[in-house]
């Protein structure tokens, strides 16, 4: 048997999501084909997805070989660690201040910490830093203002590129250039509605 590991995993993923969907859909009235309730279409969609997922999974056992990239022990460890730490930080975040108990700031902090934790594993580093950079943007934007948020985003995203770590001046130049550009485009020209400097509102 030549196993197509990617297809098997894809099939499993489709099946998993479909199963979750079907379970959540139990809340919704099904109705009948003639008079469909809100749950009818989801039911159809998830069953079809389940079937297709199963088909992809089964065919995946024969259509290979197409192995997955090898995961090291540390990749697993840090994936779990990041989820655990991230969730924990999210849950205790209201203790850090009122800011984190409003809207999505608490879960945002959890995501940021989680993505930074996962960067300890080399295999996750690129994805981790890029996602963390976006999270810090969302966290800082409303209270810290656009300038601070953009600067922090550039700083964290730059860590994904080894060349930047040895030459921090390039990052600084890029930061100044992008800050000026963002100010010119988004504030001066488009006038989008955000705070520009810290504590503006």
């Amino acid at each position: 048997m030549k196993i197509n590991a990617k297809d098997v995993a894809s099939g499993a993923f489709l099946i998993l999501l479909a199963a979750i969907g079907l379970w959540l859909n139990m809340d919704h009235t099904l109705g009948t084909a003639r008079r469909m309730g809100p749950g009818y279409m989801p039911m159809l969609v998830f069953w079809v997805q389940l079937g297709l997922g199963a088909l992809v999974l089964v065919l995946g056992f024969f259509s290979g070989p197409d192995p997955m990239e090898r995961w090291k022990g540390i990749d697993w460890t840090m994936l779990i660690a990041s989820i655990v730490v991230g969730t924990l930080v999210w849950q205790i975040s209201p203790m850090f201040g009122e800011f984190f108990s409003s809207t999505y700031n608490g879960i945002g902090l959890g995501m940021l910490v989680g993505f930074l934790v996962i960067c300890y594993a080399v295999g996750w580093r690129l994805l981790g830093f890029i996602c963390a950079a976006m999270c810090i943007f969302a966290l800082l934007l409303e209270k810290g203002g656009l300038m601070l948020a953009v600067a922090a985003t550039i700083l964290i995203s730059a860590m994904a590129e080894p060349e930047h770590r040895s030459r921090p001046l390039g990052v600084l130049g890029l930061m100044i250039f992008l800050l000026a550009m963002c100010w010119w485009i988004f504030i001066k020209q488009l006038d989008i509605r955000v705070a520009v400097w810290p504590m503006q509102y």
Partner: peptide, 16 residues
Amino acid sequence: MLPRRAWLAGGAVIAA
């Protein structure tokens, strides 16, 4: 486009 600069200046002064 809109008097955003006036706002910025005003905001900075008030914050100070």
